[in-house]
Design a protein around this nucleic acid. Structure first.
Lengths: 350, 350
DNA sequence: ACGCGCGATGTTTACGTCAACATCGACGCG
DNA sequence: CGCGTCGATGTTGACGTAAACATCGCGCGT
């Protein structure tokens, strides 16, 4: 142990040339072995592999990237890792990319200012990536007069269609309609909405679709209350809704805010689902254990992640440019936070 | 403009040589401008920058890495992005690394098998990184007879001390003691424990510390119930605890499981905190809005992330090797899920 | 027996950047 | 007025890899 100690920390590991020397072959043969080419004699291959093992050789990916003109790496621009959706999508992207043989380069936007976004884009421009997935709520994108280098393939998740980039997203419209119609079918006269931040396109589409659904069914459209996706904002907005006896059904923009609303309703003594029905959006793992277990719209984040990686790699490899946005469908998960409305008498009686 | 158009623009962008030609200088001068060296005439600098803009030049990071022998990139091995802690820590790592001028290379372990872990390590060995942060629950590490290439600096988060790598982690012992003593001070005779998976070192340390605290106070140590961090497992384990009238205080290994326990207690008709007090661990954003708002131990994930990046960069740049593990302290956040026990009479009366 | 073909292996070179060294001209000082 | 100095800029080469091309030797067909 003491004799082996690598006291002289050398920056660079062994190169092909070192392996070649030890194995008594040329560098090219080492290269062929490293890349699993077939035209190498079995004996030679074995000898080279032994040399690699002995030296602890690992190919220098910088040299490889320089030589080949591609990095086999995907950049992912992310604003924050606090929301359930972003996290899950990132997870799915990482998995899909890994399976396809691409590495992930995570580029956080440090704060909400324009300059921070521009900065992140610039950083990414310098980064060793073949393409980029943008995973930030799009308003930030819109505000920043941001330009990624031409010729760098880009896929956008959760965004407006302002950009000439392919878009992959959950089918927000379909999900919001599912939620709203579920509540109407239970017999509620109308459905209130606790929405996400107005700056988010996802929130905006859910709001629009909720509104359209109500209109399609000839119902009144109550005023919207906005949160910012956090359960704290859901609680605060929820207190206003809880104080309003006309509210019997609420479609909430995500599960975290729904949790805040549930709390506000309890504090006000309004029973869920007897007095008020609540539907969320996302289906986080926890939602099944809220009290009562939350009826919600399940997003298939894994699918969103996978599809965006597929789209990006298609662009990288073939220069394909799919303009048709991909919309991943949702599914309504009915649990115990929704029920038919009690009529007024029963309600008051209880 | 049209005459100039590089219509056959293939994979590779413009290089220094292209910029140099357009600006009428040597490549070296372009390099100096790109790297903000001071010894360039202001006029020349301006001309070069104009050329860069016109061509959309961005330095080729592969060539740079090859030349300089460093990637300015950190690899992060991650098992899953489902748990609150992992996500937050990753966020903090990404932020800290970016500030220090390092990129993040995210390497997911695709599943729990040994080969997947080994595989991830191998992938990482090929990756363009100067160092590695391991952010997976350590048992997986232990089982896989894993070897990262020598000379590649590594920092481990949430792990055993079996490895010769620096460790940064939340002070699990102190946190568990805080939680347990809080419940004892409220007057509970003893404290039950709903722990994380036995394979997790974090879970193990919390369990040990809870037990030690009880022993130090001369209390009985009840049998442990285990979950796997998910709220579903918390619910299932919680049903057993809820059915046991002797249980008046529970320290839960994380907030997600605590949510499941709360649900189990409600279903059983046991009031929180009047019949049973509950303390969680983590302090997720949602915990403040559980019903009742959860008393919990706050982990400062941002600090854990920052410290691990600091430790890693110190190793990368100076070859320093800190063996002293870093333990980041926790803080008890008292909310409404804990209270003194009702005495038996009152309890039965209600 | 001779040459052709083919598989195994070697040699050369370029990928883009930047450190090291070389050069060149202007300015100051004795 | 000549030489030294210093700042601005240019030239060369090496980082590690892999494609393209070159070479070598063996077996097979006639």
């Amino acid at each position: 142990m003491s004799a082996e100690e690598p006291s002289v920390r050398r920056r660079r590991g062994p190169s092909m040339a070192d392996v070649a020397r030890l194995a008594g072959v040329s560098g090219q043969t080492v290269s062929r072995v490293a890349n699993d080419r077939h035209n190498v004699d079995a004996v030679t291959r074995e000898r080279v592999q032994a040399a690699m093992r002995q030296l602890g050789y690992r190919p220098n990916s910088a040299a490889r990237a320089l030589r080949n003109g591609e990095y086999r790496s995907i950049g992912v621009i992310v604003f924050e890792l606090h929301s359930f959706g972003t996290t899950r999508t990132l997870d799915a992207i990482a998995t899909a990319a890994t399976i396809r043989g691409y590495a992930i380069n995570l580029v956080p936007v440090l704060d909400v200012t324009q300059s921070a976004v521009t900065n992140a884009f610039n950083r990414l421009g310098q980064q060793a990536v073949d393409g980029v997935i943008i995973l930030i709520e799009a308003y930030t994108l819109d505000e920043a007069g941001v330009r990624l280098p031409d010729g760098l393939p880009v896929v956008v998740i959760d965004s407006s269609a302002h950009y000439d980039y392919p878009i992959v997203d959950t089918d927000q419209r379909q999900g919001a309609r599912l939620a709203t119609e579920h509540l109407l079918e239970l017999g509620h006269e109308t459905v209130w909405h606790l929405g996400g931040p107005p700056t988010s396109f996802a929130a905006d589409r859910r709001r629009q679709s909720w509104e359209q659904t109500l209109i399609d069914h000839g119902r009144e459209v109550p005023p919207v209350v906005d949160g910012d996706w956090t359960s704290t904002s859901g609680y605060e907005a929820g207190r206003r809704l809880a104080a309003n006896d006309a509210v019997t059904a609420v479609f909430v923009g995500n599960d975290q805010m729904a949790l805040g609303l549930l709390r506000a309703l309890y504090e006000r003594g309004r029973a869920v689902p007897d007095d008020v029905s609540v539907v969320g959006f996302d289906d986080m793992e926890e939602s099944a254990h809220f009290w009562p277990p939350l009826t919600t719209v399940r997003q298939t984040f894994s699918e969103v992640g996978r599809r965006s990686v597929d789209a990006l790699i298609a662009e990288i490899q073939a220069g394909e440019h799919h303009h048709a946005p991909v919309a991943v469908p949702t599914e309504l998960i009915i649990r115990q936070s929704t029920a038919p409305p009690l009529n007024r008498n029963q309600h008051r009686a209880q």
